[in-house]
């Protein structure tokens, strides 16, 4: 078994295990921390695929900015394991069974799919900042500028919604 396969298996187990822990944690703060572990595992996958720009952006934007925002809101509301909503075990069972059957159907369809298609690991310049920056500022300039307008409207929307009156 090569070191790449070993790293892939390790990162996959880390991602799936942390995602399960995020769902079953009682306290919302623990859920946020487990989700940060999932994001780091996914960033590890990006490094393994040599998508360096996305690995760094994933850590900075998701683990750094978005999850800190979640933590602030959780602490602002003073949520903990005692304030968790009351559970309905029948609905929980139905949710797990339906989600599990969705996974079963998708995976069985995947197993019957065609021939093997390899993925380029550890090499290749498709994910380097050099190539991505040239692509972004030649072919995708207009979506890039529109996304700044989106950010502005999201900022104004958050201020308007969160205003106290």
């Amino acid at each position: 078994m090569s070191i790449t396969t070993l790293a892939f298996i390790l990162l996959s187990v880390m991602a799936i295990g942390s995602a399960v822990m995020m769902i079953i944690s009682k306290s919302p703060v623990h859920s946020v921390l487990w989700l940060i572990v999932v994001f780091f595992a996914i960033s590890g996958h990006y490094v393994l695929l040599n998508a360096q720009f996305l690995a760094i952006v994933n850590i900075i934007v998701y683990a750094g900015a978005i999850m800190v925002l979640f933590l602030f809101v959780v602490m602002l509301m003073n949520l903990n394991a005692e304030t968790e909503p009351i559970k309905n075990y029948r609905l929980q069972l139905i949710g797990i069974v339906s989600g599990g059957s969705l996974l079963l159907v998708l995976l069985s369809a995947l197993m019957r799919a065609g021939q093997q298609q390899l993925v380029e690991m550890k090499v290749g310049d498709a994910g380097l900042i050099n190539v991505l920056g040239k692509t972004l500022f030649t072919n995708y300039v207009l979506p890039f500028e529109i996304s700044s307008v989106l950010f502005l409207s999201a900022m104004i929307g958050a201020v308007v919604i969160g205003k106290k009156d």
Partner: peptide, 17 residues
């Protein structure tokens, strides 16, 4: 990968709202 970058941009805006 540019597409992934834009998904992250939209996700950040979505989280704030």
């Amino acid at each position: 990968q540019i597409f992934v970058f834009f998904i992250m941009v939209v996700a950040a805006a979505e989280v704030s709202v």
